[in-house]
Amino acid sequence: MTYIKSIGAYAIMLTSVFRRPQKRQIFREAVFKEIDDLGIKSIGIVAFISFFIGGVVAIQTALNLEDPMIPKDLIGFATKRSMILEFSSTFVMVILAGKVGSYITSSIGAMRVSEQIDALEVMGINSLNYLVLPKIIATVLFYPFIVLLAMTLGIFGGWVAGVVTGLFEQQDYVSGIRIDFDPSLIQYSLIKSVVFAFLIATIPSYFGYYVKGGSLEVGRASTNAVVWTIVMIIISNYFLTQMLLS
């Protein structure tokens, strides 16, 4: 019953979020600020993780290819496919759900418990529209670029791993990347990233906006927000994969 109530409240929240912003200039400024807070400030961690995961995938594939009949360019092919299909969109988004989701919930939750949201409402400002819509626009616009960056750095990380460890030849890796290149897989990954970006912006906002109590409850709400965002990313990943690839 609580879950149904929450889904209803989340849907009602979205109807308030998607209204015309009261002042376009302020809205534009807010979107750029959110792109900086939620997007640009996440590039470092995404780049770091993508680069090393790409390397690890390449090394693990190389170490598991003992059969001389299996061509070595499979290493590059497997790394490319792993990075494009799952890592760059799903796992990077799970990482962002943790980093950005907890930030969104705690910042909005802190505003709720310190009556800053009430202050906005008293002024006649649609607080949901003012606080949440710029986050949605920022993440939906910017996260596909983060996913593209993760793909590139992951594949590059695999190549660097080959150079550093000497486990496979660079030419094999590069030819593996070129085999069976299918742009629709990148499209699939970007579509997923848009959906996940929407979930990352809205679910933590919901938990933060409706928090009741004090700082302890804000902390709890942040944890719940991250858990539920990840759960929803994984579930929607399942359905999106079936819809887009089957």
């Binding site: 802190a110 505003m111 310190s114 009556e115 800053q116 009430d118 202050a119």
Partner: peptide, 8 residues
């Protein structure tokens, strides 16, 4: 507001 509710 009681706690001033200034935007941090």
């Amino acid at each position: 507001f009681q706690g001033s509710a200034l935007f941090d």
